[in-house]
């Protein structure tokens, strides 16, 4: 139950969003994020988008590792 999934926002309506998680579409609550648009990536937890994902993981980890 603790697993967070990343998903792409397909559409938004009335505080809910349809998201695409690796091909599976699901309706989730988008009430906790105010600035969402279709095409954004979000972290979904227990049926609610809890955070917007702002960059790609490869860029992030590579830049952290470059500092070592």
């Amino acid at each position: 139950m603790c697993v967070g999934l990343s998903a792409k926002v397909v559409s938004l309506k009335d505080g809910m969003a349809i998201v695409d998680a690796s091909g599976a579409k699901r309706s989730i609550s988008a009430q906790l994020l105010t600035d969402l648009n279709p095409g954004d990536y979000v972290m979904v937890h227990a049926g609610t988008a809890i955070a917007k994902i702002t960059d790609n993981d490869t860029d992030e980890t590579d830049s952290l590792l470059e500092e070592l």
Binding site: Q31, L32, L33, T34, M43, I50, A51, K52, I53, T54, D55, N56, D57, E60, T61, L64, L68
Partner: peptide, 26 residues
């Protein structure tokens, strides 16, 4: 790597999702 330096530290290695303030709405 930081531990080896011998001083307490904190590093956010997930900044694309985690911001300093978190989610004020939540």
């Amino acid at each position: 790597t930081e531990f080896q330096k011998g001083k307490p530290f904190f590093k956010n290695c997930y900044p694309r999702v985690v911001t300093g303030e978190g989610s004020p709405q939540a």
